[in-house]
Simulated scan of single mutants.
Amino acid sequence: MADENSGLRITLEFGGGAELLFNKIKKQQVTLPEKDKSWTIRSLLVWIKDNLLKERPELFIQGDNVRPGILVLVNDADWELLGRLDYELQEGDTILFISTLHGG
């Protein structure tokens, strides 16, 4: 297990139904392991898929991106303004994924 003091500590939040894919956990603090390159949202999505996503990954991830219909906010700012998948995560960031897709 990685040392709790090493790595990048961020907060992940899931809403609008996206939390159902993560054991109904809406908010969690995670420590991403240290690696040679910076953590980006692109690499975070792979980590989420491998470590947190509990069911039906096709409802959250499409290719190497989030599925259309999922809003992504970084520290309450639209990720579109920050470089989307290439945004480099910073210590203490909060990444919020909100599903706007509602089944009927």
Rank of each mutant, 00 (worst) to 15 (best):
1 M>W: 13
3 D>N: 13
4 E>Q: 15
4 E>W: 02
5 N>P: 07
5 N>V: 06
9 R>H: 10
10 I>R: 01
10 I>E: 00
10 I>A: 00
14 F>R: 00
15 G>V: 14
15 G>N: 03
16 G>C: 07
16 G>S: 08
20 L>V: 15
20 L>S: 15
20 L>C: 14
21 L>I: 12
22 F>C: 09
23 N>F: 15
26 K>I: 11
28 Q>R: 15
28 Q>E: 12
29 Q>A: 06
29 Q>L: 11
30 V>G: 03
31 T>F: 04
32 L>G: 01
33 P>V: 07
33 P>W: 04
33 P>A: 12
34 E>A: 04
35 K>Q: 14
35 K>W: 01
35 K>E: 07
37 K>T: 11
39 W>S: 01
42 R>L: 13
42 R>T: 13
45 L>T: 01
47 W>L: 10
47 W>Q: 03
48 I>D: 02
51 N>H: 15
52 L>E: 07
52 L>P: 02
54 K>S: 13
56 R>K: 14
56 R>T: 14
57 P>T: 11
58 E>C: 15
59 L>F: 02
59 L>A: 08
59 L>E: 00
61 I>F: 08
62 Q>M: 14
65 N>V: 10
67 R>A: 03
68 P>L: 03
68 P>R: 09
70 I>F: 07
71 L>R: 04
72 V>D: 06
74 V>N: 03
76 D>N: 08
76 D>T: 04
78 D>S: 10
78 D>G: 10
78 D>M: 09
78 D>C: 14
79 W>P: 09
79 W>G: 05
81 L>F: 12
81 L>Q: 06
82 L>D: 05
83 G>I: 02
84 R>G: 11
84 R>C: 08
84 R>P: 10
85 L>G: 04
86 D>Q: 11
86 D>K: 10
87 Y>K: 07
87 Y>C: 06
88 E>S: 14
88 E>F: 06
88 E>P: 02
89 L>C: 03
92 G>L: 06
93 D>W: 00
94 T>C: 01
94 T>S: 04
94 T>H: 05
95 I>M: 06
97 F>I: 11
99 S>H: 05
100 T>Q: 13
100 T>N: 09
100 T>L: 14
102 H>G: 10
103 G>I: 10
104 G>V: 08
104 G>K: 05
